[in-house]
């Protein structure tokens, strides 16, 4: 069971997220609503990466690939005048699934360091592909419009978009929770714990891990779909390996192998960036060493440091 401290944190966190649009409108501080929306999008990406890192033992250093794939699906379709949100969403999901399937198929044949290097290299290939596609803006990126859904649900309205993002965050957490504790999740976690033993007791683990890889890619692709809508701008930078590194940091900071940890990790990281970059543009010179120290001394992450047992449930 989850500890009281954790339940309290979640409850407060959720209420704050729900209350942000009316509060920021009342205070005339729209900037913070945008920031919160960004945090939630990266929270979705981090939650999906944690399915691989924390539960599947798959150290993917290329999660930005799906962020880029999902956002380019929106921008490229919009470029050809297709602004229907359902179609854009379907293509974002389908394209991320396809990319994850190909990358996963190549990477999962290997192990350890190879896995890290190949996910990194293949994602960087997509980044270079984005840069070389002059038609879609090349390295300058491309402007795009918000997706169109129903008449009564105008995504052009920032508040509507905000709640859509919140909806997807809650949905991705719920899906992840069910996944982790299902039979499928047992196979994934078992293979992280001891893959040889899994095979010895009769699990063909490759196909399960590949499926998990694709699911995580799709969830992150949805984050990309939302990101394109939030920024109304898509650039190859979304696929740069620094982005992959950042999502990884969010998972680490929040607590690897916990369900809600990555959400807090994403919030903490983006908040830190926001605050400290106000003081100095050279904030990386401080953050770099902090990251090293975090790895050395704070592996459990903020969520993991709260009281309570660390199991699939929380």
């Amino acid at each position: 069971m989850m500890s009281r401290a954790k339940i309290l944190c979640l409850l407060i966190g959720f209420l704050v997220l729900v209350a942000i649009p009316p509060a920021t409108t009342a205070l005339d501080a729209d900037f913070y609503m945008g920031l919160a929306a960004r945090m939630m999008i990266f929270a979705i990406a981090a939650v999906s990466l944690d399915l691989l890192l924390g539960y599947g033992g798959m150290v993917s250093f290329g999660h930005a690939a799906y962020l880029g794939t999902g956002s380019y699906a929106v921008a490229i379709l919009a470029f050809y005048g297709i602004t229907d949100g359902f179609l854009q969403f379907a293509v974002a999901v389908g394209a991320s699934a396809l990319v994850a399937l190909i990358i996963g198929f190549i990477c999962l044949r290997t192990k350890g360091v190879y896995f890290i290097m190949i996910t990194l290299a293949l994602t960087q290939m997509l980044y270079f592909l984005g840069i070389s596609l002059e038609e879609y803006g090349g390295d300058d990126g491309i402007n795009t419009d918000r997706s169109e859904f129903f008449e009564w649900f105008d995504l052009g309205d920032d508040t509507n978009l905000y709640y859509l993002i919140l909806f997807f965050l809650v949905l991705s957490l719920w899906i992840s929770w069910r996944l982790i504790n299902s039979r499928f999740g047992m196979v994934i976690r078992g293979s992280q714990s001891n893959d040889d033993r899994m095979q010895a007791i009769g699990f063909p683990t490759f196909r399960y891990k590949l499926t998990m890889f694709v699911i995580a890619g799709v969830i992150c692709g949805v984050a990309g779909f939302l990101l394109a809508n939030l920024t109304e701008f898509v650039t190859p930078e979304y696929m740069h390996w620094f982005r992959s590194g950042e999502i990884m940091i969010m998972v680490l900071v929040g607590g690897m192998g916990t369900l809600f940890g990555p959400v807090f990790g994403a919030i903490a990281y983006l908040l830190f960036e926001e605050v400290i970059s106000d003081f100095t543009e050279h904030w990386m010179i401080i953050f770099g060493p902090i990251l090293v120290l975090l790895v050395l001394f704070a592996r459990k992450g903020v969520w993991g440091m709260l009281p309570g047992r660390e199991r699939g449930d929380d």
Partner: peptide, 8 residues
């Protein structure tokens, strides 16, 4: 084990 929803 492609059963994604029920608690194991």
């Amino acid at each position: 084990s492609f059963r994604f929803w029920r608690r194991a």
